[in-house]
């Protein structure tokens, strides 16, 4: 049981240079893998391919041996670097949470999401507050794999420590595979079992 990207090639346009050249990566269920690379090396692109947001120019992504579904909830959920670009600016945050299909309060409470925030629009919350919604949405979707692309760079270090505590506890409880993309080596050492460079 693993999430595998095999021989991934990617570029936006035929005339553009390759962003990813023959990249392969595997994360087992229950494993936490940190991915470290300089900015612009294609980490986020690879993350988007793993979560099914981009189609590779060639190569394949398999979750537990099957290609990612074209419909329904994707078993690979991604949390983005910029939460303000990952939520619909015209939706109240209640709807953003409901998008995950579940509406319990357990995970939002653990993440410190104030019930009153649900009535606001994304533009009315700070980046750190917004990111908690994105984390909650991903965790509540019942995904087997989680891709965290610089999810805590917007957050103060106390909130960062708290959010990782929630994410890692939930990941362990559900035996999820987690890919952690970060530039912070200290953070990688604290959150991952294995570190790989792109």
């Amino acid at each position: 049981m693993a999430l595998k990207a095999e021989n991934i090639w990617f570029r936006y346009n035929r005339r553009d240079p390759w962003i990813l050249e023959n990249q392969s990566i595997t994360v087992e269920k229950g494993e936490r893998l940190a991915l470290i690379a300089p900015s612009g090396r294609g980490k986020s692109t690879l993350a988007m391919i793993l979560a099914g947001y981009l189609k590779p120019s060639s190569g394949q992504v398999l979750a537990d041996g099957r290609p990612l579904p074209a419909k329904g909830v994707c078993p690979v959920q991604m949390i983005f670097q910029h939460p303000e670009k990952a939520v619909n600016p015209r939706w109240r945050l209640r709807r953003v949470l409901e998008e995950s299909g579940r509406a319990d309060r357990i995970i939002p409470d653990l993440l410190g999401i104030e019930p009153a925030w649900a009535d606001r629009f994304p533009g009315e919350l700070s980046g750190g507050e917004l990111q908690r919604f994105c984390v909650a949405r991903a965790l509540m979707s019942g995904a087997d794999y989680l891709i965290c692309d610089e999810i805590s760079t917007m957050l103060d270090v106390i909130t960062q420590a708290r959010i990782w505590e929630v994410v890692l506890k939930e990941a362990d409880r559900r035996n999820m595979g987690v890919i952690i993309i970060t530039h912070n080596r200290h953070l990688a050492l604290k959150t991952a079992d294995r570190i790989t460079e792109l």
Partner: peptide, 21 residues
């Protein structure tokens, strides 16, 4: 002090509770 202690290299300790709304 809590900020200092929450750095991953200094203990990665979250602080109970949240900033008031």
């Amino acid at each position: 002090r809590a900020l200092w202690r929450a750095l991953p290299q200094n203990g990665f300790q979250p602080l109970d509770g949240f900033q008031p709304y």
